[in-house]
Write a protein that binds this DNA or RNA. Structure first.
Length: 733
RNA sequence: GCGCCCGUAGCUCAGCAGGAUAGAGCACCGGAUUUCUAAUCCGGCGGUCGCAGGUUCGAAUCCUGCCGGGCGCGCCA
């Protein structure tokens, strides 16, 4: 329980007594104080209560004060009534010291970079909650929730047709934080990487791979294909005749390749990510250019096939279980996923191969139990809604209908007045397509299959089955899709009131021009390149700082050697660079767009990752110095108490004591930026403390041990908080 | 046309379960270092909270309308 929870509880009891209402309905309006001079927390309820009680606000405040004060004897200084009727609460220093004093020493782990090594021999060790998903050994005294929930967090969702780019960055980073925070709170979290591996783009991927290898098999280079693609791309707006003419040689070539059985051997050849991407882009370009030209290729069975229809046909064949398509698909998927893991690792994201459960999983052959859950969705929808429309699902007031529209299978949803829930720009009812006219499935179908699976079949670590909460982390532009899909699943009775299903949205990453971030050439920014650049820029920065520090030391005749080895510097640069990128993404409210700016995110001052990492490194430095000068005292020994006489000590202590309410808020509202703000405030509070309160040179032993303990608590809190953000700290910078 | 998000200091953003004089950072100006990393700290400058109504003891916060920006609206995800 947080300190705020404690105050809320005590004040609620008092307010209930004064107002004559049940405690459960009494909102005591206890908030952190708006200004430090008003204390630490404040209760604002007296003003609004005065009206219903027909008395003066200050009198009401006095009655609440009288009722609650005895309960707060050990918690707060005498309450002050101020202004129109605010009740200002200042926590006793003793309460803060006691609250923080109860935080046990961290588990010491040999070899780990735990601050716990300080506490060797400490007895009050903590138990880590077994449901947690990553090796975090220090809970900083926070206990897990008593009633854990089974939670699914779906995030990242790369598409295997393309390598990961900035478009995947926010979902991956934000989703990872939410998974970590909820797991830390004690919930059972299952991460689901719902990769795009079964949709319309797969036809183009498979076709592209075939085409590329056929050309390479005939001696062409990838560059030649790339040049051809570039030439075609420029034709996309050209008149039909020009496009038809340009396509002519490609179509003949293609037809020839199709007849040449010797090329079939190429399907055994391994593919590269480069081929995959180029092939995909090439086919997409080809289709765009072929649109309306009537260009055809000759199939093996001598039939003519329209160019732009081929990818769709291949997708359909894949989904129908054709062996060739299936094999190629597997190759493309393997190579693309391996690449994704190559990003997740350095990026410090928890996702592993185990978390991958893509669209294909729900299709026949995508899993081990030979069930086609996409087909089951279709059947289910027909049963629930039927062709003539079912009755409104109880409680939702929403009625669904499954109808055929131009050959596609479409779900329409109506409210209790029979009005369509969704409309298109012409004001007509807007349906959700669950099966295309060519028989292929779409994302709506896989999403429906996935939610059914997660709520009914997904098995959790504890043995429990079915999620109680499902969180989708995707960009805000998909909002309408999620509204439709949720409404449909509710109307079908698949999502019940017993479960919580949320779409966690976020804004776009913009470039300096306020347009979606692109490379200078106008292409998408690859995540791989982004991370490399982050490390490179961080390294340059570190080298500059090191040189500047060297100069200063020469001036001061400081002979201390603070230089780090090249390898350590690289590792520091790597962590700082990645941290900067992640923190910049997380620090603002999710829903707003943010401008990607290297200089700002790598700045050493202000609300940035480097600033907080520096604060951590400074604390660790104190401990290194302590080891040199006075050995390593056990700051968690029973005799050590926290003294908070200096304002900076007290401010730091108060901040530390607010960790619980902060993490609770982040978990409740799914708002990582609230944690960022907290950590920045904590780092700033520590910096002020550092400036005004000598630690190792403190006046006496008791004060030194107290301050060393505060330092360690600050370090542990920073390490935990940054860890929840997926950011690794460093021992020195 | 309809729907969603956004509009707060020169810039980037917090604050929005209604609460006291609207807060940070950057930039700018001034100051602090015999001491644990100056990658720091302290002070100053800077705001009709897009506009207009309404609800309220009290509105950046809630409601309505308008203005400006972004996004979305059937066989892509």
């Amino acid at each position: 329980m947080s300190i705020q929870d404690l105050l809320v509880h005590e004040f609620s009891v008092a307010v209930a007594a004064v107002a004559g209402v049940p405690v459960a309905t009494a909102d005591a309006q206890v908030r952190p104080a708006g200004d430090p001079k008003f204390g630490d927390y404040q209760c604002n309820v007296a003003m609004s209560l005065a009206r219903t009680l027909k008395s003066k606000p200050r009198d009401v405040a006095q009655r609440i004060k009288d009722a609650v004060e005895p309960q707060l004897a050990d918690i707060a200084e005498p309450l002050e009534i101020a202004g129109p009727g605010f009740i200002n609460i200042r926590l006793k220093d003793g309460l803060l010291a006691q609250y923080l004093g109860e935080i046990p020493a961290p588990l010491s782990e040999p070899g780990a970079q735990a601050t716990g090594s300080l506490a060797a021999g400490g007895t009050a060790q903590e138990q880590w909650h077994p449901g947690v998903a990553w090796p975090l050994t220090d809970r900083v005294g926070l206990s897990p929730v008593e009633q854990p929930q089974r939670v699914v967090v779906e995030y990242s969702q790369p598409n295997i047709a393309k390598q990961m780019h900035v478009g995947h960055l926010r979902s991956t980073i934000i989703g990872d934080v939410l998974a970590r925070v909820l797991a830390f709170e004690g919930h059972e979290v299952v991460r689901q990487n719902h990769i795009g591996d079964w949709g319309t783009q797969m036809g183009a991927v498979i076709l592209g791979l075939w085409y590329i290898r056929a050309r390479v098999g005939r001696g062409a280079s990838l560059d030649a294909v790339r040049a051809l693609q570039e030439r075609l791309r420029k034709l996309s707006d050209a008149p039909v005749e020009a496009r038809r003419e340009a396509l002519q040689p490609i179509c003949s070539e293609w037809s020839e390749d199709l007849q040449d059985q010797s090329l079939d051997a190429l399907s055994g050849v391994a593919v590269t990510l480069e081929q995959l991407e180029l092939g995909y882009v090439f086919v997409q370009t080809l289709v765009t250019v072929a649109e309306g030209t009537g260009a055809t290729v000759t199939n093996r069975d001598r039939t003519e096939e329209r160019l732009e229809d081929i990818p769709r046909k291949v997708t359909r064949m894949l989904q129908a279980g054709d062996v060739y398509e299936r094999t190629e698909w597997q190759k493309a998927r393997d190579i693309s996923l391996a690449y994704c893991q190559g990003i997740y690792g350095p990026l410090g994201v928890l996702l592993t191969a185990e978390d991958v459960r893509g669209e294909s999983f729900y299709s026949l052959g995508g899993n081990n139990d030979r069930r086609d859950r996409l087909q089951e969705v279709l059947q289910g929808l027909h049963e629930k809604f039927g062709a003539t429309g079912g009755s409104p699902r109880e409680g939702t007031g929403v009625r669904g209908e499954v109808r055929d529209h131009e050959g596609a299978v479409v779900v329409y949803l109506y409210n209790d007045k029979g009005e369509p829930l969704f409309k298109n720009p012409d004001g007509e009812e807007l349906g959700m397509i669950v099966q295309k006219s060519d028989g292929a499935y779409l994302y709506a179908t896989t999403d429906l299959a996935a939610i059914r699976f997660r709520l009914k079949e997904l098995r959790f670590l504890s043995g429990g089955v079915g999620a109680q909460r499902v969180i989708y982390v995707t960009d805000a532009r998909q909002k309408l899709h999620f509204e439709m899909f949720f409404a449909c699943a509710r109307a079908a009775g698949w999502i019940t009131d017993a479960v919580r299903v949320e779409h966690v949205t976020f804004g776009s990453v913009l470039g300096g021009d306020r347009r979606p971030l692109k490379t200078r050439e106008g292409g998408t920014v690859k995540l791989r390149e982004l991370l490399d650049e982050a490390e490179k820029r961080a390294l340059e920065l570190l080298q500059q700082r090191a040189a500047a520090a060297e100069e200063r030391r020469d001036e001061k005749d400081d002979t201390a050697d603070r230089s780090v080895g090249e390898e350590e510097q690289r590792e520091i640069a790597r962590r700082v660079g990645i941290a900067a990128v992640k923190y910049a993404d997380l620090r603002n409210d999710r829903n707003s767009d943010y401008v990607f700016d290297w200089d700002k995110m790598l700045a050493l001052t202000g609300n940035t990752a480097p600033y907080m990492m520096y604060a951590y490194a400074r604390i660790r430095s104190i401990y290194r110095k302590a080891a040199e000068r006075i050995g390593s005292p056990d700051v968690y020994a029973p005799g050590v108490t926290l003294a908070l006489g200096h304002p900076a000590e007290r401010a730091l202590a108060l901040r530390l004591a607010r960790l619980r309410e902060t993490i609770d808020a982040v978990a409740a509202d799914l708002t990582p930026h609230v944690l960022c703000t907290y950590l920045y405030d904590l780092a700033a509070d520590f910096m002020r403390f550092y400036e005004s309160c000598p630690v190792l040179a403190a006046a006496d032993d008791a004060s030194r041990l107290s301050r060393m303990r505060l330092c360690d608590l600050a370090a542990r809190t920073l390490r935990l908080g940054l860890g929840l953000l997926g950011i690794e700290v460093i021992e020195r910078m």
